[in-house]
């Protein structure tokens, strides 16, 4: 009972944050709202006993994606940021996209042959998979990051 109330409260809060993001007049505020939304979704996953998904949601979405959005705002021209308008103006498209995604997710759940076997994914299994069968991918990932760092350093170096 108590948990249900918290879950409902969190869901309500998530909707409030989502609406706040749509109606905020400053991009930075919208980013803060969306960060809050991501964290609340993470908490909901925790409450539903999927700690792994919750941790991923908070770390990747609440952390990395928000920082990425902040960078985007930081690198955008001031004039665009100073416009005091609601960011979203074309609501019909928003509704269309939301409907499409809902239908897509709905189809995923209804297709019976879908092998979405929900098994318990722990950090232990993750590390075992990552450092055994996927070690090659892990190494290549490191090379990708190295090449992008080298490229980024080259691109921002002063032109002599």
């Amino acid at each position: 009972m108590f948990l249900t109330v918290i879950l409902l409260a969190l869901s309500f809060l998530a909707i409030i944050f989502a609406i706040g993001m749509l109606y905020s007049r400053e991009i930075v505020h919208a980013v803060i709202y969306i960060a809050g939304l991501f964290i609340i979704l993470g908490l909901i996953y925790f409450m539903l006993d999927n700690t792994f998904l919750g941790a991923v949601q908070i770390l990747i979405y609440g952390g990395a994606v928000t920082v990425l959005l902040m960078f985007g705002v930081m690198l955008t021209k001031r004039e665009i940021m100073d416009k005091k308008e609601s960011i979203t103006t074309e609501y019909e498209y928003v509704v269309l996209i939301a409907l499409t995604i809902s239908i897509y997710i709905g189809t995923l759940f209804t297709v019976s042959s879908y092998p979405l076997s929900i098994y318990y994914m722990s950090m232990y299994t993750l590390s075992t998979v990552l450092f055994n069968s996927f070690i090659g991918a892990f190494v290549v990932m490191g090379v990708i990051i190295m090449s992008s760092i080298i490229g980024a350093i080259y691109m921002v170096k002063e032109v002599e």
Partner: peptide
């Protein structure tokens, strides 16, 4: 032979070639 390594290979080649394209920064 795996989607994961296929994507990583595409990305490694992709990211390097983005920078190569802008190599003459002047």
């Amino acid at each position: 032979g795996d989607m994961v390594i296929l994507i990583l290979g595409l990305e490694l080649a992709g990211i390097s070639t983005y920078i190569l394209t802008g190599y003459i920064r002047k």
